[in-house]
Design a protein around this nucleic acid. Structure first.
Lengths: 191, 191
DNA sequence: ATTGGAAGAATGAATATTCATTCCTATTAG
DNA sequence: CTAATAGGAATGAATATTCATTCTTCCAAT
């Protein structure tokens, strides 16, 4: 196996195990076994488990945003842009359940809160698209004049919750249902 | 210290530590120390850590629902009832940040998913109020005709997200802002 | 073209740490 | 004095991390 392949195998194995069993159901020994790699090998690519976990998250974000922003037309009306982003996001989550589950694990851990703080105070790529859209919408009086954080909650709260429920099998989301759900989110934030 | 006091101290200490640091930042030894109790003493009151964790959750639910259902008038219009429940819930979370954080920790753990399954398939007290309200609203054509699970997501998704953001200090929710947020949730589910 | 061997990569057994749980002793209440 | 209760050190299982060793690769010298 070539060098980058090994790193990729470790990443894949870790993502899989953590997404399915949480951080605690993924001891390094198990990750190594799933990656067909010696336990010590992981430490040649990642300084320790924390580093592995956060690099995994960064990889994931980089994979995520390009797909979602594909075909995104910054000149369309606010509503249309919101619906496009919302449905893309939901589709991504539903089509990549492992990524989604990992994301949730990460967010509900000490790592996640720290990361979130940076994102809200400083700024991160990707979210800026949403931020701009919301700010633009508010200035055009198309979107409710609420703090950004609340607009985020009204939009992503339901999307995340629904994606989770779909993946856990509590509801089945087809394209039509996704569209109706994102529509409802829009009703929540529109003036 | 009298017997029931000791149990209460253990419960308080466990809730505090788990809410603040997650299940992993709350080893039994630390809980014992915070409760000013010997490590072995905990096992006189709780068979093991799992039992402690689930009993903690049940205690919490019992404390939660009465407060939220207070002054709930089942004969008012659907919209009014929704706003009442939503604001009560948000207020409870914001005024009991430890309870809220514990709830989140619990839900994002293997315990939580199992529990959730029961709640959605079988039935649990408390949530029935919401279920009835939604079903009634749908039948009156006041609420969008979406699966119950999605209506839940549209309502609780934002409420939970906002409560979390408030507790983590990302936004400051006063009564007015809470009302506006719950209003926005209503816009999301209303026809 | 072949070979010797150096540099780097991989390994997994050994180690150190953390943690839930147990169990024996001390303390208290009746 | 006895029985119940509390305490916390001891235990053992689970886990992250290390490290001495083995394996691979690749190139220089013949």
């Amino acid at each position: 196996m070539t060098k980058p392949d090994k790193r990729a195998e470790i990443v894949r194995a870790a993502l899989e195990l953590i997404a399915e069993n949480g951080f605690h159901g993924a001891p390094m020994a198990a990750i190594a076994e799933h990656a067909n790699v010696g336990a010590g090998t992981i430490y040649r690519y990642f300084e320790n488990k924390d580093v592995l976990i956060t690099e995994l998250y960064q990889d994931l974000e980089e994979r995520m945003f390009p797909g979602i922003l594909e075909e995104y037309a910054a000149d369309k009306p606010v509503r249309e842009r919101f619906l496009h982003l919302g449905t893309s996001l939901m589709h991504f989550f539903i089509e990549n359940p492992l990524d989604f589950r990992y994301l949730e694990q990460f967010h509900n851990s000490p790592y996640g809160v720290e990361h979130r703080r940076d994102k809200i105070l400083g700024k991160k790529e990707g979210c800026n698209v949403f931020r701009e859209l919301f700010e633009h919408g508010v200035s055009l009086q198309v979107i409710k004049d609420l703090p950004l954080v609340i607009l985020f909650a009204l939009s992503f709260g339901p999307i995340l919750a629904v994606a989770r429920d779909h993946i856990l099998g509590f509801v089945n989301m087809d394209s039509a249902m996704i569209a109706r759900t994102v529509d409802a989110c829009w009703d929540g934030i529109k003036r």
